[in-house]
Design a protein around this nucleic acid. Structure first.
Lengths: 349, 349
DNA sequence: TGACATAATTGGAACGTTCCAAATATCTAA
DNA sequence: TTAGATATTTGGAACGTTCCAATTATGTCA
């Protein structure tokens, strides 16, 4: 019902002190007498005071807004939702709040939300960039002293910190596992070739093929949209090949699910007639039938790690661009044809 | 590289006008001459000016921060992630940004994040409250003139707007469908009885049972955690009953998946030996085997609708508490034993 | 008691914007 | 040419906080 805002001045008047003292209390300064502190706090509760952070960071010019921006390219994908949760937990417990925006892979939208966040005075930004993001897009931010951490997809050329999972090592272990099961013809299915993640995973595939002493066939690399539909399409092409593969590592789990669909449509049972391995370990992977053998990347962990890195840089005041690749591990389930519920841990290099 | 912030005053000096004029340009006022506007805009671009919204809303006291707070109880649940995306799309295109926080069903955390959001001066709040949230918790907000929209779970007694799906009608149609397939003994499985959503869905179940001319057995209502594990537990109890049910409507899809697991563990095939219907229509529902018959509630739609309602109230300046229940429809797939991929639409009352 | 250190408090000025009332420039018609 | 209108521009004074330098209260020692 009270129309006007309660300000420090109101508190000061009611408590019989000066606004400066109230401010000191607000900041938990040790300068203020215990009795006055108690008094002031009591009055604040009584009048229903709410701190105006906007006014505060107007004064303390620097990056003290206690807001971190989080931008993800596809929140409907549970991988990124988990990532956001990971960020949120550490950000929250550090007393920050997060601006979360979804770009849906639109670079324009990404530009807009980043601009908006900047106007709101974020102290730092965590971003999983939309496809084909220009590395220069974040230049102004870092120039203004706002730390930026890029996650999941790295941005070659941008001088910012980044955290990506060890895509290469993950694929190596996936291929090795299949080779260990006796497969000689292993395909790489799905994904758009214009992304850094694709390059890494493909490189891992090639390494794995070499390491297993198998021949590398260019025809076994079949790209497609990184989606379920893309997986269906890719397996269709793979099966049409003369010497068809007997197993596949997939760009990600969505593709792997599509591959399973496509196999069944051709009366082939994934896991029995054809081995399938995914990448990401989304929640659905273990509930699916057959349960998906996949490379687990722990998106929440990446989110937490990214948030920690960002907070460190915010507190340090200066942003050393550092790059971290997080370990992944192969989770063996059923779709690769190995025994049920055997889990092999394999740390990445 | 430039150390100091660029302000309107810098722009004014460089453009040879007064700060007031620059401010006018910023607000797109029609008072300012076209030539000066162009000049000012050019200088702003040149100097890399970024608007300081914090300073702005300090002056224009009201709720013009263009921030909406979004609080959800479980972002790892794709239902709520979708909801957040729905909110984000309309909020973004209205030129607002969203603060998104996850409470993980913790009331303390919820209190914290709401307080923090308030300090940051949100213009409105959309919340899917944590379990056992006190309706009075949002009193201060509305008293301060900040519109609040509660979604998904309603908060009886709180004088705020709310959007919930038509839980009752959804359950009625689910039960009717099962009865139409010839089932006489239909159970209601899963969910915690202390929530309004549970009450609504249970009421719908009873209505449906009555409408189908069946007898209502108290023993057929078996509550449990609203999770996969809870579903396993509930179906176990149901099967142990003397006259066991032949079909079940479940509190939500997670429970339904658990029920399917539990059935298989007892060598019963869901869809063939026992009919299962879920609620929510999460993404996994159509990919599962058997595909889940369920009541679809379109979380993105709820998010969009909630955001629209909130923005309307923000713009109106005054918040009429209004309550909306959104229509749901039964999506018939395989787990109920009916034919494959037949979709019956049924609008809610 | 005086002198000095220490503890606690305090009034402006500043942060970057918007608003207001008032000033100036430009146009129109007599 | 001038009065009155209209179109544009403009200096302060806010907004709610923090910071600084300065002030006042309190304690200690000889």
């Amino acid at each position: 019902m009270t129309k006007a805002r309660v300000t420090v001045i109101d508190i000061a008047k009611a408590a019989g002190v000066s606004k400066s003292t109230v401010s000191l209390v607000l900041q938990g300064s040790s300068l203020v007498n215990e009795a006055t502190r108690a008094k002031v706090n009591a009055v604040m509760r009584e009048l229903g005071y709410v701190y105006n952070r906007g006014a505060a960071n107007l004064r303390q010019a620097g990056a003290k807004s206690r807001i971190v921006g989080v931008v993800v390219n596809d929140l409907t994908n549970s991988f990124f939702a988990e990532l956001a949760v990971g960020v949120d937990t550490v950000v929250q417990s550090a007393g920050f709040v997060q601006f979360l925006s979804n770009t849906g892979e639109s670079i324009d939208r990404q530009r807009e939300v980043v601009a908006s966040m900047r106007e709101h005075g974020i102290s730092g930004l965590i971003v999983s960039p939309a496809r084909a993001t220009d590395a220069a897009d974040f230049k102004p931010l870092v120039a203004a002293g706002i730390p930026v951490v890029v996650v999941v997809r790295n941005l070659p050329g941008a001088k910012v910190s980044s955290i990506v999972s060890d895509n290469r090592a993950g694929m190596v272990s996936a291929v090795k596992h299949l080779a260990g099961l006796g497969h000689k013809r292993i395909a790489f299915l799905g994904g758009f070739p214009d992304t850094a993640v694709f390059d890494d995973r493909l490189a891992g595939y090639r390494n794995g093929v070499d390491a297993a002493g198998l021949d590398y066939h260019e025809g076994f690399v079949i790209s497609s949209a990184p989606s379920r539909a893309g997986g269906v399409e890719a397996i269709g092409k793979a099966i049409a090949l003369g010497r068809r593969p007997t197993a596949a590592v997939c760009f990600n789990d969505a593709v792997a699910f599509g591959v399973c669909d496509g196999l069944r449509a051709r009366r082939l049972e994934p896991g029995t007639d054809f081995a399938v391995v995914g990448f990401d370990d989304v929640i659905e992977a273990q509930a699916a039938v057959p349960a998906l053998t996949t490379v687990s990347v722990d998106p929440q962990g990446i989110g937490r790690r990214g948030a920690q890195m960002l907070l460190k840089q915010i507190n340090a005041g200066k942003a050393e661009a550092e790059t971290v690749t997080t370990a992944v591990r192969l989770v063996v389930r059923e779709s690769c044809g190995a025994g049920k519920s055997v889990t092999s841990k394999q740390d990445a290099v």
